[in-house]
Amino acid sequence: MNLTLKVWRQSGPDDDGRLVRYEIEDVSPDMSFLEMLDVLNERLILAGDDPVAFDHDCREGICGMCSMMIDGVAHGPQKNTTTCQLHMRHYKDGDTIVIEPWRARPFPVVKDLVVDRSAFDRIIQAGGFISVPAGSAPDAHATPVPKLDADAAFDAATCIGCGACVAACPNGSASLFTAAKITHLGLLPQGQPERGSRARAMVEQMDEEGFGGCTNTGECTAVCPKGIPLDTIARMNADYLRASRKSG
């Protein structure tokens, strides 16, 4: 099939950027979305042009590196799917596809479709961990964890940190990302000692980074490749409010 792409091109943070139109022929329905861009890039390189820069690595939906707004939807039309796992059979001959980077102040564009998501790392640095130096751990069976808690913790822990939640949120909020980690650790007995301080520190860091406020629109969870549930945000709010009340 033949497609028209409109791709955001921006040479660096100081460039204004614009959508550039490319015609691309003979796209196989079995190609992945990124392979389709590979083909475009091979062509651009041979023509001496700059290839479209985009983040990608594992190409199996788990590293969280790929990040494209495709026709106004984070990661494109297929539910629970990262851009790298999206295949071209979802498109038909003659389609026009608009590809943009994630848009948020805390995610500045580095180049083309590549954005800087280090704000997420700083949110984790603020408290997204359990303080346990190597070698100091008790036996793994010392503290049983109810299966349901462990499973719910796992569901939250599957977050891949791609940032689609921020990209899709009309408020540019990072609540789902932050809440996923707070929920994961807050549900486990090992995470209890730091539960309150963790929630407070992470939420404050999230606000400091300049993410928007949550209005519970649910857009985040709808585009989340791992389907992180929205009630993680309720849990984050509960932990945050409790911690704030305690320490005033």
């Binding site: 409109k6 106004g72 899709a168 649910g218 969870t221 709808a222």
Partner: peptide, 11 residues
């Protein structure tokens, strides 16, 4: 966003 952002959440 340049493209119209399509809502994926219900409501």
């Amino acid at each position: 966003y340049a493209a119209k952002v399509r809502s994926r959440a219900d409501g």
